[in-house]
């Protein structure tokens, strides 16, 4: 809580001059733009580039329905980052929060607003999120976020226009810090201690990336709620 108050004060003082643009209005526009998409399904391909994990590229089918229902079907095993795959601007800004307009920045030639969002709810896992929002299309181009207990992560979005009216991600790059302990074997060998030895650099926190490519979107086709009643 103290951290949140200090962060609030810091941004209140430091960013007073940036408040000439209302961040809440921008966030509202982002939500409104996303609200027109009631549901969609898409083919996704997932490529994992994480130290301590080796996994082949996977194909899957992703179903989404507002506000944040996700269902994934895959013929084989797939491992998808929770933060990236079930990202929805609506659920992100739903809880009580405060926001600051920090500055404008050009990202890949696109004029974007940099907005910091701090949740006010103590129970929220999110500590602080920084969003880069396309001021022309009102799309989130990039998010950097600190979340308990999984640490910091960043998501970068490239969009494609579906049916000439809906902007949906074409590619998501999800970057996050990897705790080696997360992947430490729970099956410790009693027969050969050498198998339990960790590599020398195993204590260092490393960066992992997951790339998700979307294709074959079907938007607003009316996906039944029953599809989301499973675990996913």
């Amino acid at each position: 809580m103290l951290l949140k108050i200090v962060t609030l004060l810091f941004f209140s003082i430091g960013l007073t001059f940036s408040q000439n643009k209302d961040p809440e209005k921008i966030l509202e526009r982002v939500k409104d733009e996303f609200k027109v998409i009631e549901d969609y399904k898409a083919d996704i391909s997932v490529k994992v580039d994480i130290p301590f994990i080796k996994m082949p590229e996977r194909e899957a089918k992703l179903y989404f329905k507002q506000p944040d229902n996700i269902h994934i079907e895959s013929e084989g095993f797939a491992m998808l980052p929770k933060e990236g795959i079930n990202f929805s601007p609506i659920s992100l800004f739903e809880s009580e929060h405060t926001s600051f307009y920090e500055k404008e920045e050009i990202i890949e030639g696109i004029e974007s607003a940099v907005i910091k969002v701090i949740p006010l709810n103590d129970k929220s896992d999110l500590v602080l999120s920084t969003l880069w929002i396309d001021l022309e299309r009102y799309l989130i181009l990039k998010i950097e976020s600190s979340r308990k207990p999984t640490g910091t992560f960043a998501i970068e979005f490239d969009y494609t226009k579906i049916n000439e009216k809906y902007y949906l991600p074409e590619r998501i790059e999800f970057t996050f810090s990897v705790e080696p302990l997360m992947f430490r074997s729970r099956n410790r060998s009693q027969l050969n201690p050498d198998e339990n030895k960790q590599p020398e650099d195993s204590s260092k926190v490393k960066t992992g990336k997951v790339f998700i490519n979307y294709s074959n979107y079907d938007v607003n086709t009316g996906i039944p709620d029953s599809l989301f009643s499973g675990k996913d």
């Binding site: 994934i72 084989g76 491992m79 929770k82 997360m182 729970r186």
Partner: peptide, 17 residues
């Protein structure tokens, strides 16, 4: 589930292992 418990904190695991 026990073996993949830590992974499940950050990842959605889809499919049958």
């Amino acid at each position: 589930d026990f073996i993949t418990r830590d992974l499940r904190q950050s990842f959605l695991l889809v499919g049958n292992l």
